[in-house]
Computed example of a mutant assay.
Amino acid sequence: MAQPQEPNELKQLLETQEDITTSSLKRSRSPEVQEGTDASPAPKKLRKCPTEDEDNNDQVFFKEGFKCLHKLGEGTYGSVFKLIENTTDQVFAYKISRITDEFDQLTVHKEIKALKTLKGHKNIVLFLESDHSDNEVGLLLEFVDHNLREILTVQNEKGSVMLAEWMKSLIQDLLTGLAFIHSNDLIHFDLKPCNLLVCSKGTLKIADFGLTELREDRPFEFEKTTESYRPPECYQRPELMDTSVDMWSAGVIVLELVTGEVVVSKSQGWHRAGLLATLYGCKGNFNRLSEVLGHKDSPPPKLSSNFKDRASASLTSLVKRLLRCNPEERLSAEAALGHKYFQESPSGSLPDVASLLSKK
């Protein structure tokens, strides 16, 4: 397990990072130079300013030169806001993480390191720069229009099924992003639909790297993953946790793309994970799962038949290879991209997301 960093390590990371200028920022951001130092840029301090959101009147730290439009969401370690730059009218996402102890420092340290390592890949949300106050760190990110949970919810409300071409494109984007993450010896550990962003042109981008770990820091605590997307080994054999954890989560997400349903509720935990492995991944019966994990139990009721009705034979094969109960038998992201599902018709294509999300 990685040891907590010294209290000043996060500050040092922020104060020595380079000022990032990309094509996403229409104007250059001049580095602020501290007196008595060389030309290394100092981090930009956050200031308190009101949000335009009438339902959220609390004063929050935001960047100079930006106006907050509204809060996009809130998680365990902080909140995400939608900002607009005053001089260009460009919009950005701004994640503010609360720093209350060394664990929080370590968490945001890892997130920044991961985002900088993965910066520039088309299926990874783009990190631009960071700022800090005494007890908060802000991450400026590209703004992406939607997340996958939102899309699945709207389609379920409309009673519609996701287009096969777009589903294939989303799965391919997810696996391509994962292959890049894993090639850098990182494990995401928090893959779920709300952390998968979808731009207006239909491209998927992986986001929220707050729980990301280096493979070399094993073993990990099983509680790191969201329970609904947690593989069986997390419950009984956490020493086996590796990049295969992300591949299980990807398999569950594919099930949700096909069925339009949340297939594992938080209250079902280990029992439901065992069922998924039995129905979609294991050869044989539920006893194989018990054999691999050293656990005895009986299977709960069967899943919805929506998957069998909607999935092609090749997609069913891919899901089975992702939901193997033995993590060593699961496909890697790179191997999954070579599966026959991606060679068969229809080929992946991108839709007009706005029209698909229309309430009409």
Rank of each mutant, 00 (worst) to 15 (best):
residue 236 Q to M: 02
residue 330 R to Y: 13
residue 332 S to A: 07
residue 283 K to E: 15
residue 151 I to Y: 15
residue 30 S to F: 13
residue 305 S to I: 02
residue 162 M to F: 14
residue 57 N to P: 09
residue 351 P to R: 09
residue 140 L to F: 00
residue 115 L to G: 14
residue 327 P to V: 05
residue 111 E to Q: 15
residue 253 I to Q: 04
residue 4 P to S: 02
residue 64 E to M: 10
residue 206 I to S: 10
residue 309 D to G: 07
residue 93 A to M: 04
residue 80 V to R: 06
residue 331 L to F: 07
residue 6 E to C: 00
residue 117 T to D: 13
residue 39 A to Y: 12
residue 257 L to I: 08
residue 197 L to V: 02
residue 238 P to K: 11
residue 201 K to M: 15
residue 314 S to N: 05
residue 15 E to V: 03
residue 352 D to Y: 00
residue 325 C to I: 13
residue 280 Y to K: 06
residue 245 V to S: 12
residue 168 K to R: 03
residue 55 D to A: 10
residue 81 F to G: 02
residue 127 F to E: 11
residue 43 P to H: 13
residue 184 N to M: 09
residue 211 L to R: 12
residue 201 K to L: 15
residue 262 V to N: 14
residue 127 F to W: 01
residue 34 Q to C: 13
residue 31 P to D: 07
residue 296 K to V: 05
residue 198 V to Q: 11
residue 54 E to L: 14
residue 346 P to V: 01
residue 54 E to H: 12
residue 186 L to A: 00
residue 126 L to M: 15
residue 102 E to K: 11
residue 45 K to E: 13
residue 290 S to C: 15
residue 219 P to T: 00
residue 186 L to T: 06
residue 43 P to Q: 12
residue 312 S to Q: 09
residue 52 E to V: 00
residue 54 E to I: 11
residue 276 L to V: 02
residue 160 S to K: 07
residue 45 K to W: 01
residue 133 S to N: 04
residue 109 H to C: 09
residue 100 T to A: 14
residue 166 W to D: 00
residue 318 L to H: 08
residue 74 E to T: 04
residue 11 K to N: 11
residue 167 M to Y: 11
residue 253 I to P: 05
residue 181 I to P: 02
residue 149 R to F: 01
residue 332 S to T: 04
residue 82 K to V: 00
residue 231 P to Q: 04
residue 138 G to M: 05
residue 122 K to H: 14
residue 118 L to W: 05
residue 74 E to S: 03
residue 54 E to Q: 15
residue 48 K to H: 09
residue 186 L to Q: 05
residue 194 C to V: 13
residue 46 L to E: 04
residue 16 T to G: 12
residue 128 L to W: 01
residue 222 F to Q: 03
residue 292 V to K: 03
residue 218 R to C: 06
residue 334 E to Q: 00
residue 223 E to N: 10
residue 217 D to P: 10
residue 188 H to Y: 09
residue 286 F to L: 14
residue 90 Q to H: 15
residue 332 S to E: 04
residue 84 I to S: 12
residue 223 E to F: 11
residue 260 G to F: 01
residue 17 Q to N: 12
residue 92 F to L: 11
residue 243 T to N: 06
residue 203 T to M: 14
residue 93 A to D: 07
residue 70 H to I: 03
residue 199 C to I: 06
